[in-house]
């Protein structure tokens, strides 16, 4: 089942078409990375899912219910963390969560129980100062706590890690990973290592469309080509290797970098067999042979090209 489906979504600001016929579905239970360049339209898409922006075209369904602009009914299934969450500065975290709890009609006992749990989850349990004096990382963590208070089916985070230092990033990612057992998580980002760290699904947004989507393994298999890195001890070895007749097909897709040679291919097994034969025939001993995993980064660059 899909928690979120977006069909033929379009949105323009003035003459600029930000989202152009976008289709996307987020399966239940996934940790979904929504990847795109800055300004690609990630935030715009998310705001439309939340009913904060009016789409020009298309339909959005959350838990099989249609989303309407200005309406808040579908938002009961969603927890939302904006890129820069803003709270009422004069409140303490506990007071803010109490307000949120009352808004969604939780009982008093439930509010204090969940507040306690969530604040310890995000590490703000014993913080009693007003939110006005919080750092960005603290606000981000409180943002996660308030988003989870509703026990949402879908947690939407807009670039939750991009403004944080490495420690803060790790904390947020750990929290997101921890909750992924109970909640579907959709988060936008341009930091690919974050996606590789915790996501099992991903989609690349480019020029208003979804360029690639699927599970992480699928994406890598579909669009990635594997690479093999060879490092020679001396330049003459490299030149000798390149002169071999049987090496020619390997060199069609390759990069050279000092004494390194990187071979790209969709059929790595053949490459390896050929390579080892050449090395055995010529007696060249490279100092390093490494099979490189297809990275999201190379994929991303390929997609946005």
């Amino acid at each position: 089942m899909n928690v979120l489906t977006i069909q033929n979504l379009s949105k323009s600001f003035g003459k600029q078409r930000i989202i152009d016929n976008l289709n996307l579905s987020v399966p239940e239970g996934s940790v979904f990375g929504f990847i795109g360049k800055n300004g690609a339209g990630k935030t715009t898409t998310m705001k439309m899912v939340l009913g904060l922006l009016q789409p020009d075209n298309g339909e959005i369904h959350v838990c099989n219910e249609p989303v309407g602009f200005g309406q808040t009914r579908t938002n009961q299934y969603i927890g939302y963390l904006p890129d820069v969450p803003e709270f009422y500065n004069y409140m303490t975290p506990i007071q803010y969560l109490k307000l949120c709890g009352e808004v969604i009609a939780l009982s008093k006992a439930e509010i204090s129980k969940r507040s306690e749990e969530l604040l310890s989850l995000v590490g703000l349990y014993d913080v009693t100062k007003q939110i006005g004096g919080f750092s960005r990382g603290m606000k981000q963590r409180l943002g996660i706590a308030q988003a989870l208070l509703t026990q949402p089916k879908l947690l939407i985070c807009d670039e939750p890690t991009s403004a944080l230092d490495p420690v803060g990033r790790k904390e947020i990612l750990d929290i997101l990973y921890k909750i992924s057992g109970t909640t579907t998580v959709l988060f936008s980002t341009h930091i690919l290592s974050d996606v590789e760290r915790i996501c099992n699904h991903a989609a690349f947004l480019n020029e208003g469309k979804i360029a690639v989507t699927g599970t992480l393994a699928e994406i890598k298999a579909l669009h990635g080509h594997e690479s093999l890195l060879l490092e020679f001890s001396a330049d003459k070895d490299l030149q000798l290797f390149k002169k071999q007749k049987s090496a020619e097909p390997l060199l069609i897709y390759s990069e050279e970098n000092n004494r390194e040679l990187i071979l790209h291919s969709r059929n790595m097994e053949n490459v390896q067999k050929t390579l080892l034969r050449i090395l055995a025939e010529t007696g060249i001993c490279p100092i390093k042979i490494e099979l490189m995993e297809p990275s999201l980064e190379s994929l991303f660059l390929e997609v946005v090209k």
Binding site: L52, T72, N75, Y80, P82, E86, C100, V103, I104, Q146
Partner: peptide
């Protein structure tokens, strides 16, 4: 200007 209502409304508080 601060965007404080966004969190309230996205929590299902009706406008």
């Amino acid at each position: 200007s601060k965007g404080t209502l966004v969190l309230m409304v996205t929590k299902g508080l009706s406008r």
